[in-house]
Amino acid sequence: MSQKVLDLLQAKLGSGVVETHSQFGDDTAVIEPARWREAALFLRDDPRLAMNMFVDLCAVDYLAMNVEPRFEVVCHLRSLQHAHRVRIKARVGAEDGTEAELDSLVPVWRGADWFERETFDMMGIVFRGHPDLRRILMYPEFVGHPLRKDYPADKIQPLVEFREGTQGKLAPFGPDEGMSFGRQTHDYSRGEN
């Protein structure tokens, strides 16, 4: 649909484009991380491309597939005038999750702000030059990055400590605390009555 975009990008960046493909009709270019912002600026400013709609930015952790570098930052763009779309990606990060750094796209599209914060929060990718890079969905006390493949899905980090019970951990509040009309779900409360 918009092979033209990929051709223009390749002509401009040369070796900065690592690979391209058009799987399932989505045109994709993998960009050298060092030239990430340059590519973004070119996509936005070139009148033949005019990618002025920032659609999405996220990251994928390829740890389980044993790919190096570990993370892929994925950005989707669209042009309002030409109605074409493109996906650009950059591969960053060592296997232990460090060195995952990339230039921020906030100076290019303001809309990248929260999306980059989310990617930082969920995947731990640091965006250089982001004006306000802090957690957005998780709370500030949270440790780790939950969408990484090595973060256990059943791990919990409650802000209010769980209490020790006879059969493992109990919810922070017991049946005698909080609202009296709440659901009485603990076995020990029935035993007492």
């Binding site: 002025n52 999405d56 599209w109 303001r110 809309g111 999306f115």
Partner: peptide, 8 residues
């Protein structure tokens, strides 16, 4: 223009 750049 603002709405576009914010990704709306």
């Amino acid at each position: 223009a603002d709405a576009l750049s914010l990704g709306w």
